[in-house]
Design a protein around this nucleic acid. Structure first.
Lengths: 184, 184
DNA sequence: TTTGACTATTCAAATTGTTGCATATAAGAT
DNA sequence: ATCTTATATGCAACAATTTGAATAGTCAAA
């Protein structure tokens, strides 16, 4: 499964960190291309450690719980590189919202419109966040390294994805408003 | 789970059909917003039947296996309508290809470029197929019904999604080609 | 002064999805 | 003659994800 590679990639490219901080990375940056809950992350870290692909170091802290900082090992890097050149098919799409649209007509349209407006706002917020990352958090330097440029591509994908959603929501809201006006 | 609603929606809006034909619907149209394997579909059909949300009718055929044609029941329609007005959060994103980009630099870039080109072609093919549906298979009539327009919105989403992928692939291919040229 | 938010990690059950196999029949191609 | 493709359905093992709970300390605000 690719969760392990997402973790390995983060440890390799953004540096060693604890499970807790890794979960934060997932919430903040990684979620635009890979989602994972904290339960998944902690479980996977234990398995990666068992395999010897990452190595733990317990950091004693005062005033808060100790934490375990993980680094990727040489074996881990090799395994990640092997995986990185394998082909991967497009991820299957599963969008409950589209099913809801399809059923439209069986149920009243007003709640659907409200839902589309809520989604519009959600995706707009996400888009703003990603654009902020692009310009403020990870601005491309004058002479970007290959890693900088590849990382930027993943951010571009997130921005395109959310842009597409925002635009589609606007199209859909317009359409459903017209349908409500016609029927009312 | 939304698989059951995807099935109910198809039976309600596109008419009764067998498990086998439902799988074909998933492969052809539905996959642009919901994916499912035949194992999932057949299993779910049996569970929906047990709940009384769909009803089976065995059709005897000569020269090929008998088939079981399912229709949505009144209860099924009611349950679908109840579900359709519930809110649903954006689907979590999981794109292994982006992880591969992130790791770029640990592995050689040429296989990554080949993979991006393969994905470009895949998404282009998919886009062409969806555009064909839009113009040829489900052309919007002069006076579309609400169901026609809502169905069209789901197709629009698919077209936008694949368009975005094709464009991103082109951006990524350009970028990786430059990186290879620099390093070579 | 207790309520809520943040740090830090773990366990377990239930649901959902993937992979591989299995069974028939029939039509058409090599 | 055999091979592939299409019709039509099902089982079972496994992997991945979600949901819900639990522990345990610190800090700041109401």
């Amino acid at each position: 499964m690719a969760l392990s590679q997402a973790i390995l990639a983060s440890l390799a490219m953004a540096g060693p960190c604890s499970g807790y901080d890794l979960v934060k990375r997932f919430d903040e940056y990684i979620s635009c291309y890979w989602s994972a809950s904290h339960q998944q992350v902690y479980k996977e870290l234990r398995e990666l450690e068992k395999k010897g692909w990452i190595s733990p170091e317990t950091i004693a802290q005062t005033g808060r719980p100790n934490k375990i900082v993980y680094s990727i090992t040489e074996t881990g890097k090799q395994q990640l590189a092997i995986w990185a050149v394998l082909p991967s098919d497009p991820t299957p799409i599963r969008e409950p919202l589209m099913i809801k649209l399809k059923t439209g007509g069986l149920a009243p349209l007003e709640p659907l419109l409200a839902e589309l407006q809520r989604r519009h706002q959600l995706h707009q917020t996400n888009l703003d966040r990603l654009k902020h990352f692009e310009t403020e958090v990870f601005p491309q330097p004058e002479n970007p390294t290959p890693a900088d440029r590849l990382h930027h591509l993943t951010l571009r994908r997130g921005i395109r994805y959310e842009t597409e959603w925002v635009e589609w929501c606007e199209e859909a809201i317009q359409c459903v408003k017209e349908l409500i006006a016609q029927s009312g």
